[in-house]
């Protein structure tokens, strides 16, 4: 398993990276953490002529809070997310999900930007970002633009990111104190993609659910934002009936393929089960549990 030949570029700035992307078009690929791309290259399923390594770009790193948003550089790694006190305090859903991705070695390399931008439905962070109403900052030859995570995913390896664009930053509205969130991932073992996974982010007004977002991982061509599941929870006490209804709505949107993780029907059921668990856990956390 040896990759094909390529030319290696290590731009020092986003501008330089974007220029290279523009120059090489479909012959160029961004190298971030590399743990999706390099295995594909070793199988010769990806044969880019130019690799643009963005790990040397300082402005793509860092995790900070600014203007009511958590701003995470696209090249911040899962390990960076796990080590961030800011995220632990303001948005514990992120480290919770990061810890369920791959294994320790890969988390040192794997970036948040790579995870959300490459369009693999098996990646965990897209669903998390949708649940948190994150916004992706993109930069291309024509300048910068923002796309909401909920509008970003069109299908498997098909996203709003243009060939000549680079994801530079993930911007998450800082969740209100008192919110509750959970990511529940069922997998065969450490390092696996989800058989099914679900994220839930809830807030309460008294004992009534004020807002709710429920999303699913790896049970469709892309991460799924289940608007109807959130609707089923808002205004309720998130009791068993509401949770069951939300989970049923999540299952209705799940359309997994049968694979070695299980037949489609099972994976659909697990999407429902993970949604149930995520909602219950998020609710308990919101209530200080």
């Amino acid at each position: 398993m040896i990759p094909g030949s390529f030319a290696y570029h290590r731009p020092a700035s986003v501008d330089e990276a974007v220029a290279l992307l523009g120059q090489f078009g479909e012959d160029g690929k961004v190298l971030a953490g590399g743990h999706s791309l390099i295995p594909m290259m070793k199988l010769r399923l990806a044969t880019p002529e130019h690799l643009i390594d963005i790990n040397g770009i300082g402005e793509l790193k860092g995790i900070r809070e600014e203007g009511g948003q958590l701003r995470i550089g696209a090249a911040a790694t899962q390990a960076d997310i796990l080590a961030s006190d800011l995220l632990a305090n303001t948005c514990p859903l992120l480290p919770e999900a990061a810890a369920l991705i791959a294994d320790p070695q890969i988390r040192y390399c794997g970036t948040l930007g790579g995870n959300v931008a490459n369009g693999d439905p098996g990646n965990d962070m897209p669903a998390v970002m949708m649940a948190l109403a994150a916004i992706y900052a993109l930069r291309g030859p024509g300048g910068a633009r923002e796309v909401a995570a909920r509008d970003f995913y069109h299908g498997t390896f098909d996203t709003a990111l243009a060939e000549n664009e680079l994801l530079t930053e993930i911007r998450i509205p800082t969740p209100a104190p008192g919110h509750g969130a959970s990511y529940q991932k069922m997998k065969r073992k450490v390092g696996d993609y989800a058989t099914a996974a679900a994220a839930a982010v809830l807030s309460f007004d008294g004992d009534r659910c004020a807002s709710a977002a429920v999303t699913l991982t790896n049970v469709g061509e892309a991460a799924i934002f289940v608007t109807e599941a959130g609707d089923a929870l808002v205004g309720t006490a998130v009791d068993d009936t509401a949770v069951a209804e939300a989970a049923a709505r999540a299952m209705a949107l799940a359309a997994p393929v049968s694979d070695l993780r299980g037949p489609a029907e099972y994976r659909t059921q697990m999407a429902g089960e993970m949604a149930r668990r995520a909602i219950r856990t998020a609710a308990a956390r919101a209530k200080g549990g």
Binding site: G34, I38, P104, Q105, I106, Y108, C109
Partner: peptide
Amino acid sequence: ETSHCGACTVDLDGRSVKSCTVF
């Protein structure tokens, strides 16, 4: 060769990495 087994693990700049999946 697919970054699952860790037999190739080395320490690069204070991080454990799987050297089969790093250029």
